[in-house]
Structure formats: C-alpha cells, structure tokens
C-alpha cells in the first residue's frame, strides 16, 4: 500500500511536474522555445530579409524595385556623398565610445572598489536614473541646454567667458551657430545618453578583479600606473569591450539625436530612415543598414584577436 502511494501522482499539476522532473530535456525545451522562436523568426528572419533587400536595386526612372541580384546598390555606398555619411557616423561613434570609456572607467572603478552600502545604491541610482526618463525628453532638454539662449551660454556669459565659447564655436567642423546645432552638441548628447551602457559592464568586470591581484602587482614592484596598464586594464577589458559594443552600435544606428541636436549633415541612421521612407529606396536603405553590422563584426573580430576576451 505504502509503495503504491509513493507512485501515485494525485493531480494533473503533480503529474506534469513529475514528467518534467523525469524528462529534464523537455523542461529546457519548453523554456527555450518561445525566445528561440522569437529570435529566430522575428529577429534573424527580418535581418535576412534586410540582407536580401540590399542585393536588389531600384529602377532610377520608375522607382520600382528590380528583384535581381546585383552589387550595384553596395557600389552606391561608395559615392562620395554616401561615403561621407558612413565616415562621419563611424568617427562620431568612435569619439563617443572613447570618451565614454575615459569618463566611465573612473566612475566604474570607484563603484567597484570603494562604494559600499548606501553609496553603492546611490551609484546605481545615479547611473540608471537617466535611463528611466524618456529618451526624447532627455534629447530635447539637451537641445535647450545647448541652445544659443540656453544655460551653457548663460554660464559662459556669467563667468565672462563668452569669448571662449565664441572662439570654440568658430572652429571648423566642431563649432557652429550655437552648440545645439554643432557636432559638439551631437557628441555631448550621445555621450550623455549612452554612458550608462559603458559604466555598468566595466563596473561588473572590475567587481570580479580581486584586490589581491592589484596588491600582488604592487608587491612585485609595479607603481599604480603600471598596475593599471598591465593588470587592471587587461582584466577590465572584456567589460570595456562590452560597453563599447553598446555605445558604438547605439551611436552607429541612432537617427533621432542627430536629427534634433546638431548640423544638417546626415548620419547612417538618418540616411536609412530617409531612403526607406521619403525616397522609397529600400535596397539602398538596406545596404546602409548592413554597414553598422559589418563594422561591428570587424570590431568584435579585431577585439578578439587583440585578446580582449582572454580574461573571460
């Protein structure tokens, strides 16, 4: 009797959980199936559709898509005006990434090494808080901050440094009529909006570096600068690379920030937006959209070859 009781699954739920316990592969399959379908069909599917589009071309006169394999759309990317867009975007994304790493590293280091208890909570709050408000609200606020009558101009005026701002704005490329219509403005807003994505992975990487590792380096004669170069940076590099993947790819693809803050010259995101929308040139939009993917692929490959993931 007792043995029989041991084998009875009284309810349907009980039976189901018994089955999952006996067949653990089934459980894993059930857990993985929905996200796998989502990623496989919605994400990868649309990515391949995009890739396919980029190998078609548009008929210049009728504006109809010619569904035949051609590389002519890709060749169009190398027209000077299009190449400018790509170079401009890559330079901007690199500048934002480098600046975010330089500013983010000390913040992440402080949080990982020294912040405890309440300070740590404050750190997370400070880093995450900007992510909680709407992206558009932030960008428009920055437009006001950087505008000709904005708080930055006012600050320079109050400090009697208007001449300095004027001198900066008169610089070619970097300057403009006001900060809000300059590349500097675009850069600052990108930096502000994406920097949490740089700080958090670096902080996570630094958390995993034991203090004894840094002490050992000092013990073996390395001054703090040498310890940073030979131990801390290599061990934090996976975090820096992870962060830079975010800041770099987010900047590469964004089309709203350069629309609102900055000059009228376009970046890749804007080009994609216009080619697929107003211009109706889906193949060229697709070809443009492939550019960031290729750049990120090359970037990850180079990072791996340089040993960025060796400490993982």
């Amino acid at each position: 009797m007792a043995e029989a009781a041991l084998h009875t699954a009284p309810t349907l739920a009980g039976r189901a959980s018994d089955l999952l316990w006996r067949r653990q592969g089934l459980l894993i399959l059930l857990l993985i199936l929905p996200p796998a379908l989502w990623l496989g069909i919605i994400y990868l599917g649309s990515l391949f559709a995009l890739l396919a589009q980029s190998f078609f071309s548009i008929d210049e006169f009728s504006g109809l898509i010619n569904y035949e394999f051609t590389l002519s759309t890709y060749a169009e990317l190398f027209r000077p005006s299009n190449l400018d867009i790509i170079i401009r975007t890559v330079v901007m994304a690199s500048a934002v990434t480098i600046a975010a790493a330089i500013i983010g590293f000390p913040v992440a280091y402080y949080a990982a090494r020294y912040a405890r208890g309440r300070w740590k909570a404050l750190f997370y709050l400070g880093v995450m808080l900007p992510l909680w408000s709407s992206y558009l609200v932030k960008v428009y606020s920055w437009k006001l901050i950087l505008a000709k009558e904005g708080i930055v101009s006012w600050l320079f005026e109050t400090l009697g440094l208007t001449w300095l701002l004027e001198a900066y704005l008169s610089l070619p490329i970097l300057g403009g009529n006001s900060l809000s219509v300059s590349w500097t403005g675009t850069f600052l807003v990108f930096l502000y909006v994406w920097i949490p994505f740089m700080i958090l992975p670096i902080q996570a990487a630094l958390e995993r570096v034991p203090v004894s590792m840094l002490e050992a380096s000092g013990d073996l004669g390395a001054n703090p600068g040498q310890t940073f170069r030979h131990v801390l940076l290599p061990l934090a590099l996976p975090g820096v690379v992870a962060g830079s993947i975010f800041t770099f790819s987010l900047t590469l693809g964004d089309y709203i920030i350069p629309q609102i803050v900055g000059t009228s010259a376009r970046m890749i995101g804007q080009a994609v937006y216009q080619f697929q929308g107003t211009a109706g040139n889906i193949p060229l939009a697709a070809a443009f959209a492939v550019v960031p993917i290729l750049i990120m692929g090359v970037y990850l490959y180079v990072a791996r070859r340089m040993g960025a993931f060796n400490a993982l």
Binding site: P210, D219, L220, V231, L235
Partner: peptide
C-alpha cells in the same frame, strides 16, 4: 609604498594574473 619595498609576498589565494601565462606571471 609597497612597490618600493625589498619584500615580496606569496598570497593566500596566490593572486596569479589570469591573463598571463605562467612564464609572464613569474617574469612580471
């Protein structure tokens, strides 16, 4: 500072540098 003292330490957790091979660890 520690890096100017004529002493070296064998740490309890050994604190070997995970990104360097044994040779570079010893030669650090």
């Amino acid at each position: 500072p520690p890096y100017r003292r004529p002493v070296n330490t064998v740490f309890q957790d050994y604190a070997l540098f995970p990104h360097l091979n044994v040779r570079d660890n010893v030669a650090y």
